[in-house]
């Protein structure tokens, strides 16, 4: 009698162990066939400023270099340390701080063309990687602030230096959502009693 009971319990335990193994096997390999290629997954994490500070021609070439293992993960200043952490988690490598000679991280900014100085040379339009500058020859150019990624690639070609970078978050208009019941910025601990 106890032998039969023992056998039943044994079978139950084996069945349970099988279930646990199967479920953790699924957790280990989350259907690799459905995932997009590694370069695309890396590209999805990169901030898409297309600024070239990593030494590549854009975010996708950098992602491809990372996927091939040809570059290190700490080359993207716009992504910040958070971006490096995400890349490290995706590529199963260790967190790598920025190199000492890396370009400094800046807060997000958008380009602004001084309309009085612009001579309409179209050089900045050719430099903009996301087509965020409008204008034509000998006409004043303007930047679509919503589309500008702040890559600063338009600063160098401008012959009259009429482009400047403005911080993107200093406008009161950016505080629109949540008005005004929800505070927008960090609330200092203890300030709401």
């Amino acid at each position: 009698m106890t032998l039969v009971l023992r056998l039943l319990l044994l079978l139950l335990a084996i069945w349970l162990l099988g279930k646990v193994l199967r479920s953790s096997a699924q957790k280990l390999r989350p259907a690799t066939s459905t995932l997009p290629p590694l370069a695309e997954r890396i590209d999805a994490i990169l901030p898409q400023t297309q600024c070239g500070q990593c030494g590549h021609a854009g975010c996708l070439p950098y992602a491809q270099a990372l996927a091939r293992g040809e570059d290190s993960i700490n080359r993207c200043p716009p992504g910040g340390e958070d971006g490096i952490r995400k890349l490290a988690a995706l590529l199963h490598t260790d967190y790598l701080p920025f190199a000492a000679d890396a370009p400094p991280q800046k807060p997000k900014a958008v380009a602004l063309i001084d309309e009085a100085t612009c001579i309409g040379c179209t050089l900045c339009i050719q430099a903009c990687p996301v087509d965020a500058i409008l204008g034509s020859a000998k006409q004043m150019h303007t930047v679509l602030a919503d589309e500008c990624t702040g890559c600063e690639l338009c600063l160098a070609p401008c012959p009259v230096d009429c482009i400047s970078m403005r911080p993107a978050t200093s406008q009161p208009a950016d505080w629109r959502w949540g008005y005004p019941v929800i505070a927008i910025k960090a609330v200092k601990p203890g300030s709401s009693s």
Binding site: Q48, V130, D131, E147
Partner: peptide, 16 residues
């Protein structure tokens, strides 16, 4: 929002 902006920028860059 940043992710949305990045997606839009990626699309614009590809189109360019």
């Amino acid at each position: 929002q940043q992710q949305c902006a990045a997606d839009a920028a990626r699309q614009r860059h590809r189109f360019r």
